[in-house]
Amino acid sequence: MGFRPTIVVFQCQFNLYDDPDRQPAERFGAARVKVIRVPCSGRISPLFLLNAVQDGADGIMVCGCAPRKCHFKEGNFRARRQLEAFRNFLIYLGLEPERIRFVWLDPMESGGLIGALGELSAALRSVGPARRLAPRATAN
């Protein structure tokens, strides 16, 4: 397979406080992975996702904590409402649904991220490189 998708992972810092998940993610062979650490999934603005899409990310993964596991009590709930609606909106505008994926992990578990990354990169390989809603990436 020639195509190695570029994946941007927005990840809650409380989700990777023990490093085993983080380092394999950055060395993930099947895809180029960029992990962006955020204080809480509630910090992830829809603009982050849009900028990643426009700059040519083939896939985006949003990692937040499972319900009731949020360090800030409610940040992940806010993130879910907002980002879910934003994802649906981008799909409505023609973006492939495979490109944005949410994973809600239990901070006490490890290894969940790698499994999700594997699924995402497999899905991205079948849809191919991102072209829609990526004007900045195609201009370069």
Partner: peptide
């Protein structure tokens, strides 16, 4: 600068997406 302020496709698309989304 969150989005381009030009009338290029990157800026106009981002404007319409985010303007609408702020109205959710």
């Amino acid at each position: 600068r969150w989005i381009e302020s030009t009338v290029g496709p990157a800026g106009t698309q981002a404007w319409h997406i985010v303007r609408a989304f702020h109205q959710t």
